[in-house]
């Protein structure tokens, strides 16, 4: 069976690690961690992920921009994206929704488990 890939673009180290630990549960997946948007997009050149978990508040390039880039990128534009953020900014949410996301999680409101469960379904 082909191993699925999950790309996590998250700048906070702790959260990144937590997500990694949580996602580990899923069988036969590889977890790709990126610290910022640029790194994330670079990684897509190597591997086409099956799901992307994207943070909004990041230095250099914020999540919305990354999402834009993803959607513009032919090879990765159809990949399901989940926003995992602390930002509840209506504007951002609307933009993301417009660009096409599968879910918007406010980090502190969701357990790792629930996030993992949701992501699983898109693999």
């Amino acid at each position: 069976m082909e191993r699925k890939k999950i790309l996590v673009i998250e700048d906070d180290a702790i959260l990144s690690k937590a997500l990694h630990e949580g996602l580990k549960e899923i069988k036969n997946i590889d977890i790709l961690l990126a610290r910022d948007g640029k790194e994330g997009l670079e990684k897509t050149k190597e591997y086409i992920p099956d799901v992307i978990l994207l943070d909004i508040l990041m230095p250099k390039m914020n999540g919305v921009e990354v999402l834009e880039k993803i959607r513009k990128n032919e090879s990765i534009k159809d990949i399901p994206v989940f926003i995992i953020s602390v930002v509840e900014n209506e504007e951002s949410i609307a933009r993301c929704v417009k660009l096409g996301i599968k879910g918007y999680f406010i980090k502190s409101n969701y357990s790792l488990e629930s996030i993992v469960e949701t992501v699983k379904e898109y693999l």
Partner: peptide, 22 residues
Amino acid sequence: SHQLRTPLSGIKWFIELLLQGK
């Protein structure tokens, strides 16, 4: 608030992991 959410999320998830026996 947004900034606070980040560490709180961190705590939340790790506690979760711990409680899950991971």
